[in-house]
Design a protein around this nucleic acid. Sequence first.
DNA 1: CTTTCATGAGGAT
DNA 2: TCCTCCTGAAAGC
Length: 284
Amino acid sequence: MPEGHTIHRLAAEHDALFGGRRVRASSPQGRFAEGAARLDGRTLLEASAHGKHLLLRFDDERLLHVHLGIYGKFGFGAGAAPAPTGAVRLRLETGPEAAGDAAGYADLRGPNACELLEPGEVKVLRDRLGPDPLRADADPDAAWRRISRSRTSVAALLMDQAVVAGPGNIYRAEVLFRQGVDPRLQGRALPRERWDAVWADLVVLMAEGVRTGRIDTVRPEHTPAAMGRPPRVDDHGGEVYVYRRAGLPCLVCGTEVRTEVLAGRNLFWCPRCQPPAPASSRAR
DNA sequence: CTTTCATGAGGAT
DNA sequence: TCCTCCTGAAAGC
């Protein structure tokens, strides 16, 4: 579920449902009972996202910080909230003044982080995040400064939230495919214009992800309809070139898509469309 | 029924 | 490089 586009959507959903309203907060699971008690009855002033971090500012000194990790999930519903099923860490509900259509709730399960932060702690958090392709204030040069000095592979650099905040394993694989970059290439061997193209592509792809709620990365000529192939059936729902397509023919050249575990995550790429960099410019 | 795996990340070794 | 945390769906038996 959660790469940066998901979090930006969540911020918008929270704004739409709770923005400017008093909320009721609870922790049916009990593990965020204290925090929920503090939030209960507060008004949501602003919901924002930076990379994969969701920040909700209430009329309170502290902000709610949520990070979904790999499993975390928000479930939204309209009307009155039903009895919670499973481990709901945090439930936000509209207050009784939001009747009928305006009533709704959000259930959070399995987050990596669900905590209240002081403004100073929020600053520390944001200061260690790289530019987010979905934010207007993003400075891609900040990412380039790190990439261009690094011997680490571009595949690992793109997953490092201190370098770029937001992309995850799918966007990482897909943007490198689309830009024809060998994932094992060292950051410092990546030409500036390739980086510019990667960044520009992330901006477009992730904005599309925010719009649709899916990760679709195939160009018009490679859609199922255009190629006369069956659509992908997968839990992230989108059409992609290489992600989780190991052993299948590349949609562009037919070469078998390769996979390898890199830094604990599955990496996918096409060895022909992403020609191998010379050993001297490849990360070990 | 049990095991494995996943769109993540921090900390120990 | 491994371990840990959190949940749920799919795969294996």
